[in-house]
Structures are given as structure tokens and as C-alpha cells.
Write a protein that binds this DNA or RNA. Structure first.
Lengths: 343, 343
DNA sequence: CTGTTAGCGCCTTCAC
DNA sequence: GTGAAGGCGCTAACAG
């Protein structure tokens, strides 16, 4: 047996160490390591073995200098604060990590100048691709058309249809909410909207309207828009329920609003879900799991969004055309006790 | 006037382009750009001007190959999911970004094997420093003592006292909570604890006990521990208030618990804050701002934690000794209507 | 199939 | 004060 762990050179082990141990030239070692075809299987085995014994890791910096892949992608967020961004980030980091890619994170904190600057440094670091994450579904300005790497916009789509964007399907989510309520027998449904300056609020409202129409139902009231807060949910629910006491289904623009609505329902002595079904959006668990009763909600699948975006970038790096336009990921209905009686 | 924007070579501009435009050699250009002393001021000016006109950005990859700084730090999180991690990340990214450093993000998702792996790739990428972020304040295993770069543990301190850790002062936070209640005249104070398997729950409880003793007060009851949920807050508050109706101050182990306690107080007809003051921990705004009344809480200053950790790493990169042991950042009392009557 | 030779972009000796 | 040459670790031409 040869010595299992040859004397390691000081410092990190380099390809030349591997080559020497394997008794081949540097170039051959390189080819063997990178799976190039012009290498005899026996030599490849020798090299691979040597590499393993030295636990060699190629230096990505040196590799990057060559102009090939750096194995990094830039993640440009407009605002880390938003709770929506984190799951996207997780999904992306997850998907990339599996593919030996590392994520370079930059937060522009809502400032276009800072965003420009980060874009420059990321390109300077020769990232292989870029993912731009915003915290609203309203379209945002494009980074430009002639970037040297593939770019995908996530959650906040690019305003330029030539770019590729991936966002959540809020219209569909609105439809799903109503379909769930009608499927559970509700006939008199009202919608309490969120902040109408957000596309998400308008889209959800549109979906609600479409589904009601499709079900042959009149909305119990015009959508009332307000803000994304519990207090708005409390107030709006009081208004709506007073105006039409027959209402048996309430679609709320967000879980916060829904939680406020639940409070009002309790104050008014309405039993949920027996007298009144309440449904929210976002599936923000701190809210949905802690409310009484627990809240049915539409999960925007942010993690899927991140993962899927990473997948698309990977495909682009593998030479597939990136594509363009805005694609959506469907929301998922999470049923809890606020819409169906105890099982 | 010379042409303001000289014909740019194709591709990114390199130092040799700058040198040529400035009419000096590559070496001189390098020295001039890096502020080395052995360069005439006049030549330096020429070079700087040329660089500006070409908007030259040094290639960090090539720089990194040299073995100097790569201008990247690794951020190793044990779990991105936790809501605590994000603000730390923001603070760190913020502080680093200002210093022209980029953050390489890796999420181990609570898996030690994955953590090892990420550690290896980060070191392989020659990060200048490492920041390890956990989601509980319980000590975590050290990454080891002989890492080639400075390491700081944030929020979750390292179990090895030779490492440098930065976390939040939960004991002090517990004290602050009680001091606030006594300062507003409460004399009969009980503590509803969180999940006792968390150091945070025990530390806060300890701080509460200390401050009560210091104020010459008996705790209204032994701390009851449970879980970090609203329903535990509701149940525990009911128990505690029934056992001792004289209680006029409730320190809750988290904002979630506090919110549950507020619900119970309302159900029991106790006026908050007149009859009963309620205070939480974490200052999680979705909870504190939406409760009725708004909730006084102790903010753990996670963003400060991240920023401060980055600062310490910067100092270490500048040659200062890194230091060791666990340091803490004090929590900040955020007073709202649940402890003081309407102003 | 394998090895030799040139760079990638930059910084750093070391002569001049 | 300036420039020429060598090298960081690796890959991509080319020769053998």
C-alpha cells in the first residue's frame, strides 16, 4: 500500500500538486478533472485518485480569471426588509447551492442609485447570472437590455417585456379564494381589498370578481380598498357586515386584513366559519396559525418562485434561450378552520 | 480639448488600457491606482484621470488570484427561515456594502453536514472573513479554531470561548422590562415564559427575577414556561390572572405570547394598560403594531447586531486582533400603549 | 492520448 | 520615479 495521505504541500493544494502525485502533466490533470474527452480512462482514474487523496478543490478564482464561469450569481434585492423577499432568497439559494453555485447578495434598499452601483460591482465580479428581486408585484424599471449575463426578475416583474420575469398569480389566487368559498356553499361573498396602490390588491380583486361572475353570483358589495393592516380589516369588516348582514363569505386582501375581520366577527357575535367564512392571502403563518379560528389563506409559494427562477437561470447558463415576458406561479389554497367547520 | 471619451477597447477596460492612455507602464499605473508612495504626484494624477475617463474598474477576480483580499465575506446562516436572521443579514450587508465588500450567502438549513460543505466552498472562494448566524441564542458548536480567516458568530454564540461571538442581551432585556413596569407604578408583576428549551426564554426570565428582587418585589408567581405562541399566551394569562387577580403587570416571553395575553385580558374585562400592563419581547411589528392596544416590547436590535459584527470583522481585516468571548448588544425598550395610558 | 506553452488581469519584486 | 519581468492557479491552444 502506498501512503494513504501523501505529505501535503503547505497551503491549499493546487492542481500542480495533483498532477505531480498522479505523475502526469498539469494540462492532463486539468483535462482529467474537467471530464474532457481526450484523456485515457486509466489516467483519469489516477488523477481523480490523486485529487481525492489530496482533497483537492479547484480554485474558483483562478478559474474565473479565465473568462469562463465564476460559479456565482448575483442576487439583487430592492429591499431585504420585506418579508416576501426572504422565502424567495431561500428557494434560490437552495436551488443554486445544489448546483455548486454561490449567491452574491446585494440589497439596494429601494434606492435606484444604489441598485446601479450594485449592478456594476456584481458585473465586475463576473457573476454568471443575475436575479432581481422586488417586494411588490408592480412592474419595475428594467436593468437594461444589453447586460452581458442572463437576468431574471422575480416577484416584481420588469416593465420591459423583453426581459424574463417570474411572479405570483394574484388574479388566479383571487379566483381560487372565491371558488373555495362557493365550493363550501357560500352565496353572498364580499371582498375587502388591500392598499389599491399595489398591483397585488387590484389583481386579487380582479380574480375575485371574475370568479364570482363565473359562478353566477353578484358581489355582495363593491370591493372596498384600504391598507394592509388589521385595523383596516376590523373597520372594513364592520362596515361591510353592517351594510349587508346576509354576507356569509369574506375574501380579505391579506392575512392581516383577515385577522382584523375575524376580530370584528367575534365582536359582532358571528360564528366563523358557521355563519361567516373568512379567507386571507399570503399564508403568513404567524397570523394564520395564531388566529381564532385558524385562517384559510392563499400561499403565494414564494420559495417555489425562487427555486423556479434559479432553475430558469441554470437552463440559460446551459445554453437554452432565456425567454422573455412575465410568467406566473400559481398560489396554493391552504384550508384551515376559518372556512370549513371542524373536521 | 482632447476627446473626452477615448475609444474604449472592446470588452471591459483593463489596467493596461489605462496605462496606455496615461502614457505610463502597467506597473506604474498599478502603483498609482493603489496609492503606493513611489509615484510622482503628477503621474498619479495622469493615471487617475485616464482611469476615470475609461471608467476603469479593477477586476476583483484577478486581484483575488494574487492572494490578497478578495473583497468578499461569507455569511453562513444555519437557517434563513427564522425571522431573526433577516435583520442581521440586512445590517451586515449594509455595513459591508459601504466598505466595498460583497456578501456570499450560504444557508445550511440546520444541517451540520451542509454547513461543513458550505464552509469549505466559502474558504475555497477565498472569502476574507466569515460571519456565522444562528437563529437561537443557545451556544452552537464552533467551526474550529484554525480557520484561515477571522470568524464571528452572531446571535447564536459559539460554544468555544476562544471564538468571538456577538449576541443580544436577553437577561438585560428581562431587567429592562421589569424596570419599565415598576417605573410606571406596577407592584404585582408576573412573568409568562416562552419555550424553556431556549436559552432566550431562560435568560429573559432570569433578568425579570433579578430586577424584581432589585426592586424589592416578590414575583406574583413562579415563571410559567410554555411555548412561543399566542395560544400559550392566552392560556397562561388566564391561569396567572385567575390565580392572583391582583396582578397589574405581565411580562410575556415574546410578542406572540403577549398578544395572546392581551386577548385574554380583553375577554376577562381587564383594561390594558389601566388595570394591567402587558409587555412583550422581540418588537415584531406585525404583532406589536396591530394589537389592541399596541404592544410595548423590547427590541433586540438585530440590525445593530449585524452591523456591529461587520464592523468587528472589518477591524480584524485591518489588522486589529479579533478578540474572543461573547459580547452582547443591549435591547431597546419600545414603549407603546399596552403599558402607558394614552398620552 | 499527453505535454508544452501561453495567457486571463493584476500586483510585486527588482533593476534601471 | 519608472519600467520590465515573473507569477498567482488554471484552462485552452497547439505540438508531439
Amino acid at each position: 500500500m502506498t501512503s494513504p495521505t501523501p505529505r501535503r504541500p503547505e497551503g491549499p493544494v493546487k492542481l500542480s500538486d495533483v498532477a505531480r502525485l498522479a505523475g502526469v502533466s498539469l494540462a492532463t490533470a486539468s483535462k482529467a478533472m474537467n471530464g474532457r474527452a481526450q484523456v485515457a480512462e486509466s489516467t483519469r482514474a489516477k488523477v481523480l485518485d490523486a485529487a481525492a487523496r489530496l482533497s483537492f478543490t479547484p480554485n474558483p478564482i483562478a478559474r474565473g480569471l479565465q473568462g469562463g464561469r465564476t460559479g456565482t450569481v448575483g442576487l439583487l434585492t430592492s429591499d431585504l426588509e420585506g418579508r416576501f423577499v426572504l422565502p424567495i432568497l431561500m428557494g434560490a439559494e437552495d436551488a443554486f447551492g445544489a448546483g455548486e453555485v454561490n449567491v452574491l447578495l446585494c440589497d439596494a434598499r429601494g434606492d435606484a442609485v444604489r441598485e446601479r452601483h450594485h449592478l456594476k460591482t456584481l458585473l465586475g465580479r463576473r457573476v454568471d447570472a443575475l436575479m432581481v428581486v422586488g417586494r411588490q408585484t408592480d412592474p419595475r424599471p428594467s436593468l437594461g437590455r444589453d447586460l452581458p449575463v442572463p437576468v431574471i426578475y422575480v416577484y416584481a416583474p420588469s416593465a420591459d417585456p423583453a426581459d424574463l420575469s417570474l411572479t405570483t398569480d394574484n388574479v388566479g389566487a383571487g379566483r381560487l379564494a372565491v371558488e373555495h368559498l362557493t365550493a363550501t356553499g357560500r352565496r353572498r361573498v364580499a371582498h375587502i381589498g388591500g392598499d389599491p396602490s399595489y398591483a397585488a390588491a387590484l389583481d386579487r380583486s380582479q380574480g375575485v370578481a371574475e370568479a364570482l361572475r363565473a359562478a353566477g353570483l353578484e358581489p355582495a358589495a363593491e370591493t372596498t380598498f384600504g391598507e394592509w393592516s388589521e385595523s383596516w380589516g376590523r373597520d372594513a369588516a364592520a362596515m361591510v357586515l353592517e351594510a349587508d348582514p346576509e354576507i356569509d363569505g369574506l375574501v380579505c386582501g391579506s392575512d392581516q386584513i383577515a385577522r382584523g375581520a375575524l376580530d370584528t366577527a367575534r365582536d359582532l357575535g358571528r360564528r366563523v366559519p358557521e355563519d361567516l367564512a373568512v379567507i386571507g392571502f399570503d399564508n403568513w403563518e404567524v397570523l394564520t396559525l395564531n388566529s381564532r379560528p385558524q385562517l384559510t389563506s392563499l400561499d403565494p409559494k414564494m420559495q417555489t418562485l425562487g427555486r423556479e427562477a434559479a432553475r430558469l437561470l441554470f437552463a440559460a447558463l446551459d445554453g437554452e434561450p432565456l425567454g422573455s415576458g412575465t410568467r406566473t406561479v400559481p398560489a396554493q389554497l391552504i384550508v384551515r378552520a376559518s372556512t370549513v367547520p371542524h373536521r
